[in-house]
Structure formats: structure tokens, C-alpha cells
Write a protein that binds this DNA or RNA. Structure first.
Lengths: 122, 122
DNA sequence: CGGTATCCTGTGCGATACTG
DNA sequence: CAGTATCGCACAGGATACCG
């Protein structure tokens, strides 16, 4: 169980350290759709189609990629209900609910400061 | 001055709307280095070389790209002090200090939950 | 010191068509 | 319904060398 990022120099993790696994996590979240998917799932478990409609413009391929990645890192759970037609639900894990906080703050900061940003850019 | 994202349906912006400029801002922040640069500049104005050392593993080209993009969106100011050798400083704008909050929370959430994430992934 | 220039690779992302 | 298959482009990102 890794406790440090750079062979005993730190007790805690450091995203600024090249070798710290933190980087992978941050990189994983740093893409066009992850923050939006996590935010959408805060409303409760969602089906693939619902997510696709919510995240306007996302293609099925990319949505699948994003969900799989979030699943790999333990942020999202995928549950299959055997039925016809097929029923699959995506839900946040505890970890997912945890990261949803910071991500939500970021999303709402952007929304509430867009006019200001727009003004600066001309 | 744009107040809505989708022709009058909302009074505020919505990152889930495909056409909302919010998306651009979120996308701009969603890359490998932006959050790290903003965080590094929270300590005060920094020179190019200092940033490069702080962000372990970043190449000069990519650091320049990241800084220019942040400058374009009004998060970072670039100041040249005419001297030999050349002296250039990067600093957060008010907007930059604003977004530094949410970004910092995200960084520290990742750092403090890495062990948990690592445990889930096996 | 603070970058540019150049080249290269990977892959994120998108569109579309198709399938169990 | 919930994806997969395939194709293609654009660009992020990295390595290295060089310049004012």
C-alpha cells in the first residue's frame, strides 16, 4: 500500500510529483465528459440512453469510454437487470459521490462566472 | 452580453447544453496541466522556469501552450520585465484566483483519497 | 532565461452504421 | 435498449534542438 509519492520524501501524495499515481487520477478526470457524467449521476442512477440525452452531443462510443474509465477507477457502478429489452443502470459509488462534490463546484463556478470570462475575452 | 445558453429557455448557463459557451471553458480546464498551473500560481507570481520545475515532467512547448490558453481566457497575466537576462512573470488574475478555489479542492480531494481509489482498483 | 521550431505518437473525440 | 465496429481527423502531449 503506497503511502508516499517519491520514496519517502512525503507522507502524503502530491499531484505535482511526476511519479505520483495522483496524476493518473487527475488526468482521468481531465477530459471533456467525465465531470458531466459524474454530475448527471448525482441525480440518481441513470440508464445509458438517459445519460446520452442529458450530455448533449456525446456519441455512444465516447459515452461508453467515459463510463468504462469511471468504472475502472471505482467512481461508477454498472448494474445489469436481465430483462427484455435490456436494462442497464449506472450509479455513483461512494467514491463517485465523493468526487462529485469538487467537480460540482467546478461546474457551477464556470456557469456562474461565464459572463465575467466572456467579458475578459472580448 | 449573453445571458442564456438556449434561446431563452434558461436564465443561467448550463454546462449540459451543447451550445453553451460554458462547455468551452470546462473543456479548456479539462487537460493534463491547467489545474496544476493554476495551483502553482496560487503561491504567487512565478517565472517560466520555476513553473517548469514545479510541474514535474512538463515540456516547454506544452507549458507554453497551457499558459497561453489560460491567458486567452483571462485566468493568467503575463508580465515582461525588460532586463538582461529576460525576466517574465506569470500571475493569476482575479478570475484565476476565483477558479483556483474549485480546482484546488479537486486536487486535494484526489490527493487525500488516492489510497481509497488505489484500493478499489486492486 | 524564456521560450520557438520541428517532428512524432497516441488517443480523444466525433459520425455513422450495425448488432445481441 | 445498450451498446460495438469502423473510420478518420484533429490536436494534445512528449522529445529534442535551437534561438534572441
Amino acid at each position: 500500500m503506497p503511502m508516499t509519492c517519491r520514496t519517502g520524501l512525503h507522507d502524503r501524495h502530491d499531484v505535482y510529483a511526476a511519479q505520483c499515481p495522483c496524476r493518473d487520477v487527475l488526468d482521468m478526470l481531465a477530459n471533456k465528459w467525465s465531470a458531466l457524467v459524474v454530475g448527471a449521476l448525482e441525480d440518481g442512477p441513470q440508464r445509458f440512453g438517459a445519460l446520452q440525452r442529458r450530455l448533449e452531443g456525446v456519441s455512444p462510443k465516447v459515452l461508453t469510454q467515459t463510463l468504462r474509465r469511471l468504472e475502472d477507477y471505482g467512481f461508477v457502478d454498472r448494474t445489469i437487470y436481465p430483462a427484455v429489452p435490456l436494462h442497464v443502470e449506472y450509479a455513483l459509488t461512494d467514491l463517485g459521490r465523493g468526487v462529485a462534490g469538487p467537480l460540482g463546484l467546478l461546474r457551477s463556478w464556470v456557469e456562474s462566472h461565464l459572463d465575467e470570462i466572456h467579458a475578459v475575452r472580448g
